[in-house]
Design a protein around this nucleic acid. Sequence first.
DNA 1: CAAAAAAGTTAAGTTAGCTTAACTTAGCGC
DNA 2: GCGCTAAGTTAAGCTAACTTAACTTTTTTG
Lengths: 233, 233
Amino acid sequence: MTARTPSTPPPAEGISRVAEDFLKAIWSATEWGGAPITGKALAERFGTTAANVSDTIRRLTAQGLVSHEPYKPVRLTTAGERHAVAMVRKHRLIESFLVRTLGYSWEEVHDEAENLEHAVSETMIERIDALLGHPDRDPHGDPIPAADGTSPHPEHAVNLTDASPGSYEVTRISDDDPAILRLLAGHGLRPGSMITVGTRDASSSSIPLEYNDGGLASLPSDAAAALWLVGRG
Amino acid sequence: MTARTPSTPPPAEGISRVAEDFLKAIWSATEWGGAPITGKALAERFGTTAANVSDTIRRLTAQGLVSHEPYKPVRLTTAGERHAVAMVRKHRLIESFLVRTLGYSWEEVHDEAENLEHAVSETMIERIDALLGHPDRDPHGDPIPAADGTSPHPEHAVNLTDASPGSYEVTRISDDDPAILRLLAGHGLRPGSMITVGTRDASSSSIPLEYNDGGLASLPSDAAAALWLVGRG
DNA sequence: CAAAAAAGTTAAGTTAGCTTAACTTAGCGC
DNA sequence: GCGCTAAGTTAAGCTAACTTAACTTTTTTG
């Protein structure tokens, strides 16, 4: 038998569905510059208890997929990040595929992809990627990581919450919350929409917008946080 | 609290993946006139032990999905059959969809569908069904149950093992065994192929065939058992 | 028909993933 | 810096799904 350092992580054979969901949630927390996710946030995300999160994190740590010091936020190991990015790639290619082939709209496709991403084979993902011509954005405007794990983040987008007044193009609409997705779709907002951000009223938390067709609207801050823009000055 | 007879089955809320696989296997055993499946056969099918099968059957019985007397084959209840047929519908529509949209061949599509059938929503299945124009056969020639559970079994097919010499059309190629699927595909056989069954040599278990292009072949009996035919005069 | 073989069941033990309850730690207000 | 509260952990217990081992029933067969 060959020598092994005691700290060598176990093989990490099959990754369970729960593990995949955790890895993706941990990765997603930092995709747009956020802080590493806490146990509390994970518990809320999955509708479970803090105790269960501790338990699951312990198993993921034992598999060498996350690193975790007690009472600190959770981080991915290199192996964990590799798996997380693979899941994100699957998710976003599946969303793109469903919109293209089955007429799903971009605001309804998220939940379906959330289930399918755990079931599709690598082969199927590569065929979808080829069929769609190797897209680098999904229907929400999210970048699709390549098969080698590299991710296209070309333009540095700004969140509507932090945007100063001016003209912008919507590049990305976060698909975290279905209700907000429907609200934004109802406003006619979609990736590619042109908008003008107005001056904020200090007494209100909502943000005034003008569409390029001249329409006016005002978005509550939770909805605004889902919109990412690039200046079109 | 309202009165309930003690024999009322429990609600049977969510059906697990293992349960779905069992129901489909039990249903499939009798689709083409076979006997109800035994515990042994289920254990072999899923690569597990007889003990585990007993355990699982016990849980399925408690959920009201199968009926089972000790030491007898397993049968589906009405509820169990309803779920099994729904799984078969999903499987066969998914196979059809993958062949159509992603260029899968009929001999490779089975395993992918085996995983996806547990993940797709009802909504997605109905969209696939509509996109494909409500097909009633999958790429292997298997009938696709309708959404209401009714199944189209129009022509009564005969297994090649039982076919007397004469001319036939291949209507169905069983997708149970990938190796046999590849063998038959290698012979150029597919649903719709015309063949002539020759006279069996009593000293051999393989069956002589003639294709309509004049080619001759001989199929071993396990491969022959996967072929279903209708007489063409 | 009795004995051997095959099939099925029961029992005991494991792991992942969940629960509730009790306890510990960290961070913040005063 | 003391104490409260929120966050996190530990402990105990549950079910589904698996395992191996021991046992029982059924079927086959000489």
